[in-house]
């Protein structure tokens, strides 16, 4: 086994919005997640109210060793549902893209916070972090963008610099932060966290879309198979998956002479693929040698 080519993924992202799949299909997937010894299941359901499918998955996986992180829409939390979710042994995240919603009803924040970044709210990051610290929120995540959710956002270099400056005043150690964007990492974490990290799409992680298509990552829309008709094991051992790993392990051709390519491995390969339609170009968010 090579760390760059695992037999099974161990992190699964699964979005459930308007899905109307039969219980059998959903439960078969759950059984396979257990069998494949998945570590973390990141469930995300932004529908209002939270769907019965999610509750079914939580019931099915209760008692398994899978660590579940459930992200729901901040607006969809009703008291009975909050109570129901909090009674389960899961990490609950409420997602929003506006700090105003949190600031207007701070007592209403339940669990952890998922703050979906976009062009309009990037400057709100320091306020969101300060809010979370003040309200003793345990974890703040900046979720991976979804390829199907429209405009792909990444900050300008000047915005990243401004953020780094603003964060100097904030005690980040008081909050657990999850940052997926490789070029935002360096603002929050020390350099050694970046050493040797590269794209882990279709390796440690996979993404299951609402229609049960399986892709390497939420931000890399290359379909490897569909769980309505194939098992996860088949998809993960397929030629297509091996080919995509080969593409992702090799840094982009455009980065071949870059001094830091061994560290960043080409940044977010999904973002580059979506925006430039090739694996040969560097991540547009790269701020090295610009």
């Amino acid at each position: 086994m090579s760390p760059d080519n695992l037999i099974d993924p161990f992190i699964v992202y699964w979005d459930i919005n308007s899905s109307r799949h039969s219980d059998d299909v959903i439960f078969n997937i759950c059984d396979e997640l257990i069998k494949r010894k998945i570590f973390v299941l990141n469930l995300r359901d932004l529908s209002n109210p939270v769907s019965a499918t999610v509750c079914g998955i939580l019931d099915k996986l209760a008692g398994s060793n899978i660590k579940i992180r459930l992200t729901v829409n901040h607006d969809s939390l009703e008291k009975p549902m909050i109570r129901n979710l909090l009674e389960r042994r899961i990490s609950l995240f409420t997602e929003t893209d506006s700090v105003e919603k949190f600031l207007s009803v701070p007592g209403n924040i339940i669990g952890n916070v998922s703050f979906s970044l976009n062009k309009k709210n990037f400057h709100e990051i320091p306020a969101v972090i300060s809010f979370c610290i003040k309200n003793r929120i345990k974890e703040l995540e900046f979720p991976i963008q979804r390829a199907e959710e429209g405009e792909i956002f990444y900050p300008a270099h000047s915005e990243v610099d401004q953020l780094a400056h603003a964060l100097k005043e904030i005690p980040l150690e008081l909050l657990k932060l999850t940052v997926h964007d490789p070029f935002l990492w360096k603002v929050f974490f020390t350099r050694e966290h970046l050493e040797g990290m590269g794209c882990n799409g279709a390796n440690t992680m996979i993404y299951i879309a609402d229609n049960l298509d399986v892709t390497p990552c939420p931000l890399l829309p290359v379909t490897l198979g569909n769980l309505c008709s194939e098992a996860l094991k088949e998809i993960f051992s397929s030629v297509k998956r091996r080919q995509i790993r080969k593409e992702l392990i090799a840094p982009p051709y455009e980065c071949r002479e870059c001094a830091i390519v061994d560290n960043c491995k080409g940044g977010c390969r999904g973002r580059a693929y979506i925006l430039l339609e090739t694996f040969d170009r560097k991540d547009p968010a790269c701020c090295f040698y610009c």
Binding site: M1, P3, H193
Partner: peptide, 14 residues
């Protein structure tokens, strides 16, 4: 030959 994988705080160890 890697026979196990460990995962902690976003870091993997084989």
């Amino acid at each position: 030959i890697g026979t196990s994988v460990l995962y902690l705080n976003g870091m993997m160890l084989s």
